[in-house]
Design a binder for these strands. Structure first.
Lengths: 107, 107
DNA sequence: AATCTATTTGACAAAAGAGCAAAATACTCA
DNA sequence: TGAGTATTTTGCTCTTTTGTCAAATAGATT
């Protein structure tokens, strides 16, 4: 494996890693249609502001989100929409599993 | 957010988390066309066998890979091909960044 | 300029993840 | 059955990530 290959994999994996947390994934989905301010995001995911802020900065650093100021608020938006595409792909797998889990619980 | 939602996000993020490591991403790409034994994978990624084995088990646990025995060897294969699809989506972003990096280095 | 609001940053403790080497398994095949 | 091979598991250490609280910042508004 060449150093270029290695670097390519590293960069790519950073993006997946950023998506590899339930709160961050929730944020990405929440932003799928339009931008939201931090306060709205906090309400949606239901955890400490400072925690949300850190998750936002992780997503911003890898280029999944971008932010801009609007008056007193900072608005975040999705700038890597393909994050949603592959989200959907995984979705089917996950839904199937959840159904199985439910089936087991009911049985 | 409902508990079902939470669980859905958790499961989904597990899959991304599993892909969020350069070695594991390298393994997924290496398996894109056909199954390989652990020894071949070790040669390809270039790290300790025991380390590769752990990465393989992580990928297997979330359902990205499956394994089967063939004589003395254990063969691993990709059973979540959409992992490659969203890999490709991220690819463009990453390649662009690498080009920029290179441009900066040359400049 | 002072104040107020929204957000980010820092410091910390706890938990999770990574890599290595040695020991243990799970098989196959003679 | 017994030796041999391929792989997994374990124990360990080191590093990274996470969440929380308090303190700091950025900029808007008065």
């Amino acid at each position: 494996m060449t150093p270029f290959e290695r670097e390519r994999l590293r960069l790519k994996s950073e993006i997946f890693k950023a998506m590899g947390h339930p709160i961050r994934l929730g944020i990405i989905e929440f932003l799928q249609d339009d931008e939201k301010c931090v306060c709205e995001i906090v309400d949606h995911v239901g955890t400490e502001i400072s925690n949300v802020s850190k998750h936002l900065s992780i997503l911003k650093k890898v280029g999944i989100l971008a932010d801009r100021r609007d008056g007193l608020k900072i608005m975040y938006s999705l700038v890597m929409p393909c994050a949603l595409d592959f989200g959907r792909c995984v979705e089917n797998v996950v839904i199937k599993r959840l159904e199985n889990q439910r089936a087991v619980m009911v049985a």
